[in-house]
Write a protein that binds this DNA or RNA. Structure first.
Length: 279
DNA sequence: AAGGCTCGCAACCGCATCAGC
DNA sequence: AGCTGATGCGGTTGCGAGCCT
């Protein structure tokens, strides 16, 4: 009945790691690597710990080049940008932030960023605790509204406003969004989650893109956005995506028209494949 | 000064996925 | 193709530290 436990819980130590255990684990791994597999490692290293626990401790704390401490503003921006596009896929987000672990980012998001960005102010008898944080101005950045990550894709053809821009869905071809004078933030353009090529559904041509932002939208080197043809978004989803890519403040400079060309091939499809499966 | 409360973070848990047989 | 063990991942929990009354 049930699954077999990964280790004998009665005979392994749990809870916080002691400095001695850290040293043992670190020295063992530096000398022998993980020595075959994580399950057998604790025994070989002379630790009374579960293999999973050893792995976690190594990955999240002991591994070289782990960055601890405050997140920079740039890191904040990358996190919220990626969260907006791909949701809580912490390992993917962590891969974009050298030295940060998925656990770190998850904790940071859950305890700080989420509250900041969504403007959650818990009714409380007491005054909010003084934050050790260095920056206070993130409410204006990245998340326009407290909506869930991209999911349950829906098709829309209504004219609306996204990111402060007039938004005009057209009927054919490729999603193409001229930015005008808006600069693409470099880090967003460098995010790479999937193929670096997209193909036009209208003429069949393919081109290499400068960046793959996730959620099926590509940036090319000239500042154009391209949506993969198999994807569709509601205007609200694109709104989130663009705000996260363009940065915080479009500041009402809304003189540029954005055009969204939906591939006609997908017209009428009730349910589309989850684009995240393509990664 | 002490007790209560809140927050942040390390660690745990269980499910999903991968890899080898 | 199916089974089993190992690993990866994301959600959740528990504890310690700091703040408030």
């Amino acid at each position: 009945m049930g699954r077999t436990p990964c280790c004998d819980k009665a005979h392994v130590k749990r809870g916080p790691w002691s400095p001695e255990e850290d040293t043992k684990l670190k020295e063992f791994i530096e000398k022998y690597g993980i020595g075959g597999n994580w399950i057998s490692l604790p025994h070989k290293a002379g630790l009374r710990r579960c293999g999973k626990s050893c792995r976690l401790r190594w990955l999240n704390y002991l591994r070289p080049n782990i960055k601890h401490g405050q997140f920079s503003e740039e890191e904040d921006r990358i996190i919220c940008s990626l969260f907006t596009t791909i949701g809580s896929r912490w390992s993917i987000i962590a891969a974009q932030l050298p030295g940060r672990t998925d656990n770190d980012i998850k904790n940071y998001w859950n305890t700080k960023l989420k509250k900041k960005l969504l403007g959650i102010t818990k009714p409380s008898q007491t005054k909010p605790r003084q934050q050790k944080q260095h920056h206070q101005n993130h409410q204006q950045c990245c998340l326009p509204s407290p909506s869930p990550p991209l999911q349950g894709r829906s098709h829309t053809t209504t004219t609306t406003t996204i990111g402060g821009f007039p938004f005009t869905p057209a009927t054919s071809g490729l999603l193409e969004v001229p930015y005008g004078q808006h600069q693409i933030k470099e880090s967003s353009a460098m995010i790479t989650l999937g193929s670096d090529q997209t193909c036009s559904s209208s003429d069949g041509s393919c081109s290499t893109k400068a960046g793959y932002v996730g959620g099926g939208v590509h940036l090319d080197s000239e500042g154009y956005l391209y949506g993969a043809t198999e994807l569709e978004y509601s205007s609200e989803e694109i709104n989130q995506l663009l705000i996260s890519i363009l940065g915080c403040n479009n500041g009402g400079t809304n003189s540029n028209n954005l055009y969204l060309d939906y591939p006609t091939a997908n017209a009428g499809r009730e349910e589309l494949e989850d684009p995240l499966n393509y990664y």
